[in-house]
Amino acid sequence: MTKTDPSTDLSPLTESVVTGLPPERVREQRRRRHPFRKPLTSILRHVFLIAAAVLMLYPVIWMVVSSFRPTDLIFREAGLVFDSFEISNYVDGWNALTYPFNVYLLNSGLVVIGSIIGNLVSCSLAAYAFARLEFTGKKFWFAIMLLSIMLPIHVIIVPQYVLFSQLGWVNTFLPLIVPKLLATDAFFIFLMVQFIRGIPRELDEAARIDGAGHPRIFLQIILPLMVPALATVTIFTFIWTWNDFFSQLIFLTKPGLYTVPLALNAFQDAQSSTDFGELFAMSVVSLIPIFLIFLFGQRFLIKGIATTGIK
């Protein structure tokens, strides 16, 4: 039994309530559910995973190490060199731009939180309709939804800018958040549709017999059962928004509103000098929130139907 296995979060008794199995069967099943219990296979698996992780992480490690080196040495003596441990890149980088870096972190945070709330609410509503309701032109609208994500942003952004400029929204976070509140990230609708369709319909039927309408089925049956999908959407929205450069570049012009990608961008000039030490240091800083979100968010990601209570 491992700590990270969420099935241990619940007692066998609780799980038996969820799955409708007697507790002793749940215990027995848990034992069977764990493959690779033999120590040797387990060690082999660890060795393989650690090797793969190092391979995957080498570039990230290089960046972290470089962020502690003087800028002029990063390229002159490139490679993974642990020759200095100066935090001056962090101190200077933090204060290199008009505002201290926490301002940009906060701005990004605001945009991210608005986007997450928007996507979670609006996309799950739309997804419920596509997955569970029968309505006129369902296939047509579904196709429209998919088509709406097939045009590259570069041809959409100019008309969008004109639109938001007319509304007086340029230089606010509104052009970045309001579209999410209106489910324009249609990928997530599709994602949630796929998840909802994986939830047995018997559960809805049972609730309907109890007299529940669609809002209640949605809120009390479907939402709790699609926590992994909601977590996925949250994590993805976080990362995409946190890293999104182009639309933030176009819609935000006041330095006080700059987000992390814009701030990082303000460090560089390919034709002249770029303080890569500071740039890397601040890149590392900007990675920390997304890394933490993922580290802790994955609890919800893997909270499957097996461990979600149905009341």
């Binding site: 400029s165 176009i250 012009t253 000039d269």
Partner: peptide, 23 residues
């Protein structure tokens, strides 16, 4: 004076877009 700054590549994308909208 309200400053607006970007790097070289982003600068032209942004300038042409804002001109398109009359800003």
């Amino acid at each position: 004076i309200e400053p607006q700054y970007t790097d070289w590549a982003g600068y032209w994308d942004k300038l042409s877009t804002s001109v398109a909208a009359g800003d």
